[in-house]
Design a protein around this nucleic acid. Sequence first.
RNA 1: UGCCUCGUGGUGUAAUGGUAGCACAAGAGAUUCUGGAUCUCUUUGUCUAGGUUCGAAUCCUAGCGAGGCAGCCA
Length: 563
Amino acid sequence: MTASTSTPVPSDFIRDIVAEDVRTGKYKLIHTRFPPEPNGYLHIGHAKSICLNFGIAREFGGICNVRMDDTNPTKEETEYVDSIMADVRWLVDDWGASHLALNRNTPFYASDYFDRFYEYDVELVCKNKAFVCDMTPEETDEYRRLGKESPFRNRSIEENLDLFARMKAGEFADGARTLRAKIDMSAPNVWLRDPVLYRIRHASHHRTGDKWCIYPMYDWAHTLSDYTEGITHSVCTLEFEVHRPLYEWILDALEVSRPRPHQYEFARLNLTYTVMSKRKLIQLVTDKLVNGWDDPRMLTISGLRRRGVTASALRAFAYNIGITKYPSMTDMAVLEHTMRNEFNRTAARRLAVLRPIKVVLTNYPTDRVEELNAVNNPEDRNVGTRKIPFSRELFIDRDDFMETPPPKYFRLSPGGEVRLKYAYIIKCDEVVRDNAGKVTELRCSVDFESKSGGATSNRKVKGTIHWVSAAHAVEAEVRLYDRLFTVSEPDVGGDFKSFINSHSLEVLTAKCEPALAEARPPERYQFERLGYFALDPDSTPDKQVWNRTITLKDTWAKEAKKT
RNA sequence: UGCCUCGUGGUGUAAUGGUAGCACAAGAGAUUCUGGAUCUCUUUGUCUAGGUUCGAAUCCUAGCGAGGCAGCCA
């Protein structure tokens, strides 16, 4: 019996391939990699990829590199490197990280291999498998579409060597020349039609500075980075499927020693009610439709973390959705279910009132305060109980009172009864309003026989609601989040920004039970009957800020909608 | 248009020639001092047409549909 019996081990077509390679002894060590370009923040789709690549390494006793694919100096920044590393570490560090490869704070960088790439370039030219091309970008495009050979294709090796050295030396302007692989302009796969390997960019690179003015293209850099690092299974998303023959061609052309890496592709994650592309996420940030990359409404890893999602919940989600080649659309409800499933077991319960309405218990002594016993987590008795103060004046949530309740409404209404959780059954005798007619106070009477835990507490009423003692309440800011988009697929049918949910953030001042004042990050709580909440970094010693990570399932809301 | 890939309930996935299963969602009920959780039950599926086979979701052929690629982006 192994540890894997308690934790389900995923199975999918890629892991099947790895398992087979392990069985046949194809490689000494399974070695995967996660290769982000540092040009944006990581999102939940990257989390899927991280969990796959690190998961494979973890399950097969291998290792996984994080490698910055930083071959385009005009787009990449150190800020993104830092955020990516923080996100990856957060996601995998408590996942049996000791045998993962992430045993250092610094990632690998494709840019560290630029010198080595240059040697490979020269080798390729010497083998007459690459040439320097003088065509403009537009001409190159057109010739590739038409399958026409470049007029510069048959330059001598000496001339190519000379020209490429002068490209490197900075003699030519951006776009003036490229180094292209010499493959087959009549190939049906356009990526085999003499693809560009190097372009000229007189731009400062975030790590190599001004050392280079020629930069490798993705295919060249990525393939050779994989090979250089000893990667065995190079796992990427479906859009690179047509690049695989080029990946193979490069390794063939350089006649690299075996075993060599192989590329496998899986479908990227799509989720309802959100957008996933970096381009769109960056627009949300720059257009200030959200408050930065880590806005809790964003499906970035940093946004999810700030909202209160745990790394283990994200990993469980990655496990739940599986790995295939089918371009699917996963229901946001799966993510939500994964969170509730974990937090229900792990989050301690507290009482908090979001939209307070005052309740005065007319038959309760003015100066009396009781300390009532409350269970911290009914799913985990080990975490014990706490005391909650109870007194004559309380707050309850406005949602828990209706003047003219519909049928099946179990909460408080004029003349009706409800149980205050851990306390008494009360009856609403009188409704007090202000001049505008708004209800400002409920005057209720207590059934002292009904005290929770007491000998005569057996009487049942249909509803139980949460409450907070007014004199003891601690005020806190609460931020309620809803889906960022109003439609399930904001990517289709027009500008995605026109589907923004204008009510996706609501800020309230809540009344909390005193025990919450002692909460510290990264603790998270269930506010009973409301949802799961985590402290936001905006919290100060004077004022807590709570983010609602996810609501509880609300079958009453569903019921109410029917009528 | 060319090339590549993929089609299993509403959604996401499993079954790798041998009883189509799981999860989410939806619906009904039980229970409940959270309208939470838990438990029970129910609805809904192999894209189509041929073929191979004792037997096909699985193998073959054709069709249909969907996605990706066709940057000096990754």
